[in-house]
Amino acid sequence: MRTVSVAAGGRPRVAREEIDRLRSGAGFPESLRNQLWVVGTAEGAQLIGVSPARFARLARAGCFAPVRFYVNRYRAVVWHYLASDLVEFADASPELLTGRTDPALRMELEERDDQRAGSWRARRLGQLTVLTEDPWERAAAVAAVLPVDQLADAVPDPYERAYVRALRPDLAGIRTDSAAAREVIERVTLAVDADEIGRHRERLAAALAAAREARPAPKPGGHVPRPAAVPAPGPAPDSPDTEPDAVGGRSPGGERETQEEPAAPAGLRGWLRRLRLIA
């Protein structure tokens, strides 16, 4: 479902044209409900006719990707899946639903880490990049799954990194006052496997190249507004007492970047502070 950008701090809105498109679909509203039907482990196992234990093994092996998650009161991640994905998997791989677990799959489970977080990240990035036509927002979506040190290395230019961090989306969309829960959410949203980080860095490099061709990252005195219904920031006043988010700032998880960079001009610090306010 495509959304349109709104003023800073507002929730994305759905255009009337998109609502009309959904309403005109065959079998509305049941068809739309079926597309959006999500299930947990117990209901998903019942849906495809397997035990919850087998369902969990299939999910950990990456046979189907979660569509969302939440952190329960025990700080455990609870995954949800699209029912339509599970039915499609069951129809395509009936041999994995009955009898002894396939030896190749069993070896996969024993040798590889849990694939659910990685497959969720890949799915979430696919959703975010297809829903925007702005190349800098696409780059920011990919950058959102990289740890602070990896992002600093992948985007060495402080102006570009500040812009990417200002545009980065909230991948999980979960609000919590619990520091422990935030730590769990960060473990899900940030890539840790070296191969996955490498893939995301390659994707980010390509996205940045496309974004640079479209327009440069904004700098003090030469603002380049993003093509959305967000007012472009005006010149920022000098603010020598505030450190910029992109130079020795703090990451979404509260960690401090370790990469040392030259001190930024006072005008840049003020401008970066404004970027944080609209991020």
Rank of each mutant, 00 (worst) to 15 (best):
A45C: 08
P158V: 03
D238Y: 05
R273T: 07
D177R: 13
L96F: 10
A42Q: 12
W136C: 03
A214L: 01
E186M: 05
E108D: 14
L22A: 13
D20E: 13
E88F: 06
R138N: 02
F89Q: 07
S31A: 14
P158T: 01
E110V: 07
V155D: 00
R123W: 15
S178L: 07
A217G: 03
L97S: 05
A246V: 04
L105H: 10
V78I: 11
S119H: 13
L275N: 09
R273Y: 14
V247G: 05
A61R: 00
E88D: 14
Q259L: 13
A117F: 02
G248P: 03
A8H: 05
H200R: 12
W271V: 08
A154N: 02
E183W: 11
A179V: 12
I174R: 05
G126Y: 01
A210D: 08
A139P: 01
Q127F: 10
T129H: 10
T176M: 04
D195E: 12
S239E: 13
A162Y: 02
W136V: 02
R138S: 04
A210V: 08
A246L: 09
H223N: 12
R250E: 13
L204P: 00
P158L: 07
L125R: 06
S84D: 12
Q150D: 15
V192D: 13
G25H: 08
D149F: 06
A263I: 05
C63S: 15
L82Q: 14
S5V: 09
P225R: 03
F69I: 09
F69H: 06
R11A: 14
L146F: 00
E43F: 05
T258H: 08
P156I: 00
V155L: 06
D91H: 14
A53L: 09
P227R: 00
S5F: 06
A179H: 12
F55C: 02
G254D: 06
T98W: 11
A76Q: 15
A7L: 14
A162L: 03
A228G: 15
N34G: 14
L32F: 08
